[in-house]
């Protein structure tokens, strides 16, 4: 029932949202085509912005993995990770995610290339990246923009939410595809 619901949301979400947005735009007299093209231009800018990050991460993670260092890292944490059913690479993706969005995207791609995008680990990496945010970066940028110096408990709350997303992601992927 629960699994069925999630599968259905998955199947319908994109077509539904596209349908609603286009129809709504058209009815409201938006120049749907021109506006789409205009928005799509920003995609190029974003892609160019993340190229250097992805290269940096591919190289760093590539060296770490091929040298065999990643196995040492995973073996070190294995006892805890095994209890929770968490692959070591996914933990790495998750830690990176709260520091840098593009870097985490690069790491997720690395996992896709190594294990296959539709593998359990590939899915887990995707869900982890999709469900958490660059907490440090966002909090820093937002507060800096208005000159706040004392951030009180904002960072603790953000990190706890990231932890919850991470555990939730691992749990649900194991449950749906494990």
């Amino acid at each position: 029932m629960f699994v069925g619901l999630i599968t259905n949301i998955t199947k319908w979400a994109v077509p539904f949202i596209m349908f609603v947005i286009i129809i709504h735009g058209y009815v409201k007299g938006v120049k749907v085509f021109e506006v789409f093209v205009d928005g799509a231009k920003e995609g190029l800018k974003i892609a160019i912005k993340i190229i250097p990050y992805i290269i940096a991460i591919y190289v760093a993670v590539g060296i770490f993995r091929e040298s065999g260092a990643v196995y040492l890292f995973i073996r070190l944490l294995e006892p805890i990770l095994r209890i929770l059913n968490i692959p070591g690479e996914i933990l790495l993706v998750s830690i990176t995610r709260s520091l840098s969005g593009p870097a985490a995207l690069g790491m997720a791609m690395e996992v896709f290339d190594t294990y296959g995008v539709d593998s359990l680990r590939g899915r887990m990496a995707a869900v982890v990246v999709g469900s958490t945010d660059t907490t440090f970066y966002i909090i820093a940028v937002y507060f800096a923009s208005i000159g706040i110096k004392k951030t009180k408990y904002a960072i603790s709350v953000g990190l706890m939410a990231d932890c919850a997303a991470f555990l939730g992601a691992v749990y649900i992927v194991n449950k749906l595809y494990g």
Binding site: I6, I9, V127, S131, G158, A161, F166, G168, A169
Partner: peptide, 20 residues
Amino acid sequence: NPTDIIGAILFATTCSTMTA
């Protein structure tokens, strides 16, 4: 099927928003 993680992400983000 690139979109088939949408449900899982919805679940994980609901967990994190509630925790937040």
